[in-house]
Design a protein around this nucleic acid. Structure first.
Length: 595
DNA sequence: GCCTGTTTAGGCTTTC
DNA sequence: GAAAGCCTAAACAGGC
């Protein structure tokens, strides 16, 4: 009996072992096929990665440094993931040289040790995969993504920097620092790219020079974005402009510009108000500025919009200029500033903007809560009630648009991700915003209403909002022995890495196939099969943290959502990945890595 | 001298 | 193939 049991157990174990081996083989085979296809198409020379140097070699006549030697060590450890320290002295995770070995070892277990742990987008890579990649003669694939050139153009970088600035303007050196702070790649060869930055600033009409104020002496002028250039990167995706901005004439005072408005200070010697009051500028989230799913003729309509959900650049400019004029984002409530926001050439939505101003001003001081009985609160609620009817209509519009979220593949040019359009993102984001705003209004909560109006829901993953929010969400730890660096807080590069993957994914029209969702060699497991919310208007709308799994899954969805591929390509993708996943974004909510 | 800003030129890639 | 967008290099001028 014992022998029988033992025999049975042995057979069972053998069978299980066989099954495991077979499963492992299948998994590896799938992965191999995926990457074989992905790598089979020769990368374009235009892809910035090819310009980044290979590990173990010295590019562009640079002298080899200990740092580069460290990179070679990491390369020898098959570390193709993102665990490499960026630079000695930069406060990145694993950034200390003494942690090099640990970082290299961490490459085989990125889900645990990586600063990007939990990323469902396959940032890690298994030793087998790394070995496979190393077999390729093309050394470009053995690069450290941390030091790969970001996929953003210089114009994009400048735009991002300026958008991230509180004043929406920066000096040249501030732009330099911002870029170096966010992208370690640009901490080298500074002369080269900084020359290009200066060239871009001068050459492109989208950037305008703003003279310094008398009370802020210093070298160089401030640089700002041309107000009409606000939609260069339509939906907040900064990978590449859709169309170059051309100004007929160098920025002059526009007919609608009032003295003191940003436009009026271009080329003038008087300082814009934001210079003397740095905290005075609010901003409509850039991610919503370019949302252009609204009908094209909406410019001619009285905008039925919620704050921050303007449909045209003109509306945005007006709102933002209005806010810039009169709204102190910090400090006490100043009702008199409303008076300062009156324009001679009023636009149709001026009243709307003033209502928003009214609300915003009343709630802008978070340090001094406004009591329900205070004039400020009354003022806020007055403006809020005025806005309510407008927003109810807007929410209806959002709801009517939302079903397009689930319509699957669309080949309309505006829907191409490759064209930096992601209507799914825009619709969902704005619907979420409208819903949250409406809820706040219904609750007579001006604080929440303003927060909702100016909150970016699920911003474009490569927008400046995503970059900065993710960075803030993960404060960096500094080594106790580390000196204070010139870059006070190196940004988390996760969004950048996501952009890198997006760039390589082929979803932007630059070639290549979508890489499989692999993390440490294992396919992702998506437990959420509940599909899209049946009632989009329900409380299902949430506001995921940019760094949350949910948010990242939305990104994953965006990347793997085969919008612009042909049927054949989509079939190829499915065959390669053998995943048979539904195309509905909601399917991927809450994806986690399989054990 | 260094930094900032402008301009010109050439080359590459992608799109139409 | 042309046009557009982008990158890189370089020369030059002016200001600090």
């Amino acid at each position: 009996m014992n022998n029988l049991c033992q025999s049975f157990t042995d057979k069972l174990n053998k069978k299980l072992s066989s099954v495991k081996r077979r499963d492992l083989y299948i998994k590896r085979h799938r992965i191999l096929r995926c990457y074989t296809m992905m790598l089979s198409s020769p990368p374009s020379k235009y892809q910035p990665f090819q310009q980044s140097y290979n590990m173990g070699s010295v590019p562009n006549g640079m002298q080899p440094t200990p740092y580069m030697n460290s990179m070679s060590i990491a390369a020898a450890s098959n570390q193709v993931g993102f665990n490499n320290p960026v630079h000695q002295g930069y406060p990145m995770n694993h950034g200390h040289p003494a942690q090099m070995a640990a970082a290299a070892a961490a490459a085989v277990s990125p889900a645990i040790n990586s600063p990007y742990a939990g990323m469902p987008t396959g940032v890690g890579i298994s030793p087998n995969m790394a070995l496979m990649l190393n077999r390729r003669s093309d050394k470009a694939y053995r690069r450290n993504y941390t030091h790969a050139k970001p996929p953003y153009s210089y114009i994009s970088l400048i735009t991002m920097a300026l958008q991230s600035s509180q004043n929406k303007m920066m000096t040249l050196s501030e732009i330099y620092n911002w870029i170096m702070d966010l992208f370690p790649f640009y901490r080298q060869n500074q002369q080269r790219w900084q020359n290009s930055i200066r060239h871009s600033l001068s050459f492109n009409d989208c950037f305008v020079k703003v003279p310094r104020s008398a009370d802020k002496p210093g070298k160089g002028s401030y640089w700002s974005l041309h107000p009409d250039a606000g939609n260069m990167f339509e939906n907040g995706c900064y990978l590449r402009r859709q169309k170059r901005f051309k100004s007929d004439k160098k920025m002059k005072s526009s007919p609608n510009a009032e003295p003191g408005s940003p436009a009026d200070h271009i080329g003038s010697s008087s300082p814009p108000p934001s210079l003397s009051n740095p905290g005075s500028v609010s901003s409509i989230p850039h991610d919503m500025q370019g949302s252009n799913y609204v009908d094209s003729d909406s410019e001619n309509k009285t905008p039925d919009i919620a704050p921050g959900m303007s449909s045209t650049p003109q509306d945005i400019r007006y709102n933002q200029a209005d806010i810039n004029q009169g709204l102190p984002m910090s400090g006490s409530v100043q009702n008199e500033n409303i008076e300062a926001s009156s324009y001679s050439n009023r636009m149709p939505n001026q009243e709307h903007s003033e209502n928003l101003l009214n609300v915003q001003q009343s709630v802008s001081n978070h340090d001094a809560p406004i009591s329900a009985d205070s004039p400020a609160s009354s003022n806020a609620m007055s403006g809020l009630h005025t806005l309510t009817s407008v927003n109810e209509k807007n929410i209806e519009n959002q709801q009517s648009n939302l079903p397009r979220l689930h319509q699957g593949t669309s080949q309309h040019p505006e829907n191409r991700i490759g064209g930096h359009q992601d209507p799914h993102h825009d619709l969902y984001s704005q619907y979420a915003q409208a819903t949250a705003y409406a809820a706040a209004v219904q609750q007579h909560n001006p604080f929440a209403a303003v927060a909702a109006a100016h909150h970016t829901f699920a911003p474009h993953p490569f927008s400046i909002s995503s970059l900065m929010n993710v960075a803030e969400a993960q404060p960096q730890q500094q080594h106790p022995n580390q000196q204070q660096q010139s870059y006070p807080q190196a940004k988390d590069l996760r969004a950048y890495h996501e952009a890198v993957q997006y760039y390589n994914s082929g979803m932007n029209g630059f070639g290549g196939l979508v890489p499989p969702p692999i993390n440490d060699g294992m396919p992702l497991h998506c437990p959420n099969t509940t599909g899209p919310p049946e009632n989009p208007g329900s409380s299902a709308v949430s506001t995921p943290s940019p760094s949350s799994t949910s948010s990242l899954s939305q990104y994953t969805t965006a990347v793997h959502y085969p919008l612009q591929h042909s049927d054949q390509q989509q079939n190829d993708l499915r065959n390669v990945q053998n995943l048979d996943r539904p195309e509905d974004p909601a399917y991927y909510q809450g994806c986690v890595q399989a054990n």
